[in-house]
Amino acid sequence: MTHKDRKYMELAPEDFPLALSQSKFMPKRLYGIGTLPEKESVGIAMVGTRRPSNSAKELCRRLVKSLIGTNAVVVSGLAQGIDSYCHEAAIEYGIPTIAVIAQGLDIPIPGDRATLARQIVDKGGCILTEYEKDFPAYKGNFPARNRIISGLSQGTVLVQSKLKGGALITADNCLQENKPLFAVPGDFDSEVASGPNFYLDQGKATPVFIPESLRLVAGLPQVKSNDSLCTAPSLSQVAATGCTLSPDALRLFKQFNGFRKTFPDLQRECNLKPVNILAILTELELAGLASTPDNFQFYFNGTP
């Protein structure tokens, strides 16, 4: 795949998709082929080893399938193994997907991954890179690529990984930005479960015990019902009514938009005093941008 046979994009920071323009890992520029996701989309990074278990493909299918009906975009790195399985599952279930590559767009992608890259673009996704058209895939490019995968996403799922590997770089980048990290537990003697188990043992990740529960564990609301979108107001619609949000409320909403969070989650992830969080939640609820059925779990369901 090259830019010559697909729609080629050169993106400035203000045009970066998903959460990347607010990320500390924001690159100076991006190049892409394909279609950028809608503004209300939520990036979910799904990463792991190039040499997963025999059951990994089905695991990835079930994880990704759980995201049907949400605003999720599956973000990964187009590598063999877990990355490719997640991209393939996203295509299968009609979920947008973004592949971030560690080379220029004119450099041929080897093997079956070239076919997968074309399928991603054909199905409404895109391929992104920070490297110019003819820049080769040097070894040092891959850790840099991983920071963009994390930067695009509002949460990361560590599917299967050894104790060393690029997927752990993405996981660490996720934690550096205080974004939620999710991990699939595995057998104690499974090498490809050692990475997820490590983060779970350290209390740094939330477990996804049942693949079909990823949507609920990640707090992603169902925004599509009978093929129609729910009518949560957008920030622009709220502003049109004359309602002005405080800077802290606006910042918190943008950080958690599209997610379900408990009050302890909010205390841990937004670094504000409880009394200030309560005031912000009240402000967002009055604006129609947040709701809670039990005063413990809070849904941030609006769109930018």
Rank of each mutant, 00 (worst) to 15 (best):
R61K: 12
Q154G: 11
P96W: 00
I101V: 14
G165F: 03
F135N: 11
I149L: 07
Y199P: 06
P17I: 09
P233Y: 02
M26P: 00
H3Y: 12
R29Q: 15
L216C: 12
T282C: 12
D106I: 05
V73D: 04
R147Y: 02
T2S: 14
L18D: 01
L216P: 05
Q202Y: 08
D294Y: 03
C270A: 07
S190K: 04
C270D: 07
Q119R: 14
V64R: 04
A249H: 02
R6L: 11
K261E: 00
A114M: 10
G258S: 08
S55F: 12
E283H: 06
S53Q: 10
L200K: 03
P211W: 08
F198K: 13
H87G: 07
K179Y: 02
E283M: 08
E14D: 14
G186S: 08
K7D: 12
T303V: 15
S190R: 03
N141E: 11
Q297L: 11
Y8E: 10
G111E: 10
A12M: 15
I101S: 00
S23V: 05
Y31Q: 06
I280Q: 00
Q80M: 14
K261S: 00
A117E: 00
P108W: 11
N276S: 15
I44H: 05
V184N: 02
G32T: 00
R29T: 14
D15P: 06
S23G: 04
S246F: 07
Q160R: 03
G77A: 04
I149G: 03
I98P: 02
N295M: 13
